[in-house]
Design a protein around this nucleic acid. Structure first.
Length: 350
DNA sequence: AATTCGTGGCT
DNA sequence: TAGCCAAGAAT
């Protein structure tokens, strides 16, 4: 056990976080299923955001079998609003794959990492926490701690920097209490070694931290070099049927909001579609425009209100890609947050 | 190997 | 407040 790990575990025993819904209450070995679900949800997502999603998800899919037997739509409905929807699709796919190929979640690191959505860090975390297997993790918290402790310059996303960090993470990870250590190193990064306003005076590593000694804590880890984001405008059609039904489209399985349901976007094709379907333009500004920033562009959404002129509804173009949505079924669909916001406003504010 | 995937909180 | 960032993985 290195002095780094010894100090960290002593601090963790006194000050580590506890009571999070996915944290085990029994000694290893533990059921890896809830650990896996939480690790996927927590990818690039903060703890406070995940908690209500985790509770709902585990209530609806309490076991690996329940998840594997559920339709993808039900999984995405529980993921709606959480973001990074490939995680939900991969989670569902991995559940079925693990069950058929291994009869459950595999205990071998290579087999586990071969499942969709499980990378090196997530596989290590699951096996370390569930079975006390000796694997390192390297998430955003660990990267921040290690960049500061060793005063590593360069953006951690660079391959060369990440390789150095993985080697350091493995060198620090102890054989004993690896489950506690895995939680502890993340707790340190989340509660003390934060990006902003770190509490170095309470840190168990303050005596050996190179960034602290050199007065460079605020500059490490080095930020990602950013490019200015292009803007894209989209007009979303709010097509209302006589009975109040709204036309929704299922987006393609890959790309932004993949597999989720959205208001159809106005294109040249959809203009012709609306004319052919007898759709009448009511007004252009029923709702204020919505602005969103994604990782690679800004999006300005301008809803456009249309109404079906006659009783005849637009034809279903491709099976499963369009449906008339009834507001009382909102919880059964996977909806991205901006779309849910629009639908909420429409139903509460007609 | 750099980019692409969301959303909400923070300053 | 506009940009930065967070329990990463897939491509």
């Amino acid at each position: 056990m290195t002095p780094f790990a010894t100090r960290l575990l002593a601090w963790y025993d006194a000050h580590g976080r506890s009571g999070l819904p996915w944290q085990p209450t029994t000694p290893a070995p533990r059921d890896p299923y809830p650990i896996w679900v939480s690790e996927i949800m927590l990818q690039q997502t903060q703890v406070a955001t995940v908690i209500p999603y985790f509770e709902r998800f585990m209530a609806r899919f309490p076991t690996l079998q329940a998840l594997a037997e559920a339709p993808l739509d039900a999984v995405l409905a529980h993921w709606g609003g959480l973001g990074y929807y490939a995680r939900g699709r991969n989670l569902h796919k991995a559940a079925r794959q693990a069950l058929t190929e291994h009869g459950g979640l595999p205990r071998e690191i290579d087999a586990l990492q071969a499942l969709p959505g499980i990378g090196r860090s997530t596989a290590g975390a699951i096996l370390a926490v569930a079975y006390r297997q000796h694997h390192a993790i390297l998430d955003g918290n660990v990267k921040r701690v290690l960049c500061r402790f060793h005063a590593i310059d360069g953006w951690p996303g660079q391959t060369a920097i990440a390789q150095r960090l993985w080697a350091l993470a493995e060198s620090h990870t102890p054989v004993e209490r690896v489950d506690a250590y895995t939680q502890a190193i993340m707790d340190l990064g989340a509660t003390l070694c934060r990006r902003n306003r770190p509490e170095c005076t309470a840190c168990p590593q303050q005596g050996e931290c190179r960034a602290l000694a050199e007065g460079r804590v605020a500059q490490l880890p080095n930020p990602k070099p950013r490019k200015s984001l292009p803007e894209r405008e989209a007009t979303l059609l709010i097509i209302e049927r006589e009975d109040g039904g709204l036309l929704l489209e299922q987006r393609p399985p890959s790309g932004i909001w993949g597999g989720l349901w959205s208001l159809p976007e106005l294109t040249q094709e959809s203009e012709a579609f609306c004319r052919a379907a007898g759709l009448e333009l009511l007004d252009q500004t029923p709702l204020a425009p919505l602005r969103h920033t994604f990782s690679h562009f800004h999006l300005a959404i301008q809803p456009l209100h249309l109404r079906v002129r006659e009783a005849k509804a637009p034809p279903i173009m491709e099976p499963g890609t369009r449906l008339w949505y009834k507001p009382d079924t909102i919880n059964q669909l996977g909806l991205p947050s901006p779309i849910r916001t629009i639908l909420d406003r429409l139903t509460t504010n007609p």
